[in-house]
């Protein structure tokens, strides 16, 4: 039985994208300030299950370990979040680790979130500048507007909002909250706004904003507390206007 000296982990594993998943359990010595990452690192050093079976170390994705890169996102005790900020002392045991279910699985807890980056291409999530040469200062921007943009630009493409979204699925094209929020971010910028029609057009087709079912769970799971539902509402209004413009002016 796990006590205050040990940590009990239950991990969903899968060797290949088309393989079958299976569960393995591990019992580790408890260390001060441990998080899920440090547990997985301990398993790398002692890849032995609770039953004493020697196994391969668990594969997962991580990098910064301070919740700014988004890499180590997984489902922990049923909730999608980053493993680095999942402190062991704050988690009921056994700690259950699963890969995100809405993205193609690579191996164990590692999934492929390329779809999110492809969506950023579709909506032209960038500021189109004339060139990198020194042509002077950028636009004057009110601090209030800057602060609003900053909130949105903290999105680390982690995918929590999409994992939680009932509309987002492996077999559809729904872009999801993170992409819509990026559209809002770039449309807010004085230079970015020059391409706002193209961005809005890109999210008015299939998989676009009209498919949002308004479940509002995205905003609840966002680790950066990005006002995603506010972004969806605002971009929704803008697309409606754009639709009318397209109807009457083109």
């Amino acid at each position: 039985m796990p006590d205050d000296k040990t940590i009990h982990l239950k991990i969903k594993r899968q060797d290949q994208p088309d393989g079958k998943s299976y569960w393995e359990e591990f019992e580790l010595p408890r260390k001060p300030r441990a998080n899920v990452i440090s547990c997985l690192m301990d398993i790398q050093m002692h890849p032995i299950t609770r039953e004493g079976k020697e196994v391969t170390p668990v594969v997962w994705e991580c990098n910064c370990l301070e919740e700014v890169c988004g890499a180590c996102t997984m489902v922990i005790n049923g909730k999608v979040r980053q493993a680095c900020t999942a402190l062991v002392d704050a988690l009921p045991q056994p700690i259950v680790l699963e890969p995100m279910s809405k993205f193609p699985l690579v191996r164990d807890l590692h999934v492929d979130r390329s779809r999110m980056f492809e969506n950023l291409k579709k909506v032209k999530a960038w500021i189109h500048i004339d060139g990198t040469y020194d042509i002077g200062e950028g636009p004057v921007i009110p601090e209030k507007q800057r602060a609003k943009a900053y909130l949105l630009s903290e999105c680390m493409t982690c995918g929590c909002c999409l994992e939680a979204c009932p509309q987002f699925a492996k077999d559809n094209d729904f872009m999801g909250a993170s992409t819509f929020s990026q559209v809002r971010l770039f449309n807010m910028h004085p230079t970015g706004a020059m391409e706002q029609e193209e961005r809005l057009d890109a999210i008015m087709g299939e998989g676009g904003i009209a498919d949002c079912g308004n479940a509002q769970v995205c905003v609840e799971v966002c680790p950066k507390k990005i006002p995603l539902t506010e972004s969806i509402a605002e971009i929704g209004r803008e697309t409606t206007l754009q639709l009318l413009k397209n109807l009457f002016l083109k």
Binding site: I127, T132, E143, R146, G192
Partner: peptide, 13 residues
């Protein structure tokens, strides 16, 4: 200035 033009949300006066 270039990074500012690229849209970096630098704090403002």
């Amino acid at each position: 200035h270039l990074m500012d033009r690229l849209g970096v949300a630098f704090n403002r006066t």
